[in-house]
Simulated assay, not measured.
Amino acid sequence: MSQKLLTIIDYGMGNLHSVAKALECVAPNFNIEITNDRARILEADHVVLPGVGAIRDCMAEIRRQKVDEVVVENLASGKPFLGICVGMQALMEHSDENQGVDCLNHFDGRVHRFKSGLVDKHGLPMKVPHMGWNQVRKTSEHPIWHNIASDSHFYFVHSYFVEAHDEYSAGVCNYGTDFAAMIYRDNIFATQFHPEKSADAGLQLLKNFTQWDGTN
């Protein structure tokens, strides 16, 4: 039986190799390939869009390399698609970062910066960026949640958060304010946290993604 193909889109702005290593651990039946080759991305059975850094730079490279067009074609195919961190933010309408950046507009909703002066329940200051482990509460049943308990801990590194419509929400996190930690629609799923850095829960999520057929 031939291996399935999972491509991680390489547009120069992502934690590519750690994502690939994590996927290799949970999906031995897949050929995991980091690539910017349009044909290979469109040929893939599953596609991952990672992202780190400033949204302005990410969106500039996404558009320069025509990744935006590839994403549209992939989404139209119905194949499972996973956005990670800034890869999730890039799917929204607009981000306030870098004086405002228009994104790919696959989800209604915007990306905002955490306010300064946040305090926790003990009155202690909360630093921005939000960095480290935090709980994610399940808000919708979805195959990506299989064998993962609600309120499991995942690893976050971000200063900006997604404000998405409830209809897209699969999981919510709180860091001074509730924000979307997991969103979905049709064959798209995306996480604000880094599943590849999130120990057992993150590996289970990635495994679930590779076993997902793109339907809810």
Rank of each mutant, 00 (worst) to 15 (best):
K121G: 02
H122Y: 14
H122M: 12
G123R: 03
L124T: 10
P125K: 07
P125Q: 10
P125R: 10
P125T: 10
M126K: 15
M126H: 09
K127P: 00
V128L: 04
V128Y: 02
P129F: 05
P129S: 10
P129G: 10
H130I: 01
H130L: 08
H130D: 07
G132Y: 04
G132F: 08
G132S: 06
W133V: 06
W133Y: 14
W133L: 09
N134P: 13
N134V: 08
Q135Y: 11
Q135I: 06
Q135V: 11
V136P: 10
R137M: 13
K138G: 04
K138D: 06
K138A: 10
K138C: 12
T139G: 07
T139K: 14
T139H: 11
T139I: 04
S140I: 00
S140Y: 02
S140P: 03
E141G: 10
E141P: 07
H142F: 06
H142N: 11
H142G: 09
P143R: 04
I144F: 04
I144Y: 03
W145L: 07
W145N: 11
H146W: 06
H146Q: 15
H146T: 15
I148P: 12
A149D: 14
A149W: 05
A149K: 15
A149P: 09
S150K: 05
S150F: 06
D151W: 05
S152R: 01
H153T: 08
H153V: 03
H153W: 13
F154H: 00
F154Y: 11
Y155A: 11
Y155V: 11
Y155P: 06
F156N: 05
F156L: 02
F156C: 03
V157D: 02
H158I: 00
S159I: 04
F161S: 02
F161D: 02
V162Y: 09
V162R: 00
E163Q: 13
E163S: 12
A164F: 01
A164K: 01
A164W: 00
A164G: 12
A164V: 03
H165I: 00
D166R: 09
D166C: 07
D166Y: 04
E167H: 06
Y168P: 00
S169N: 09
S169Q: 09
S169M: 08
A170W: 12
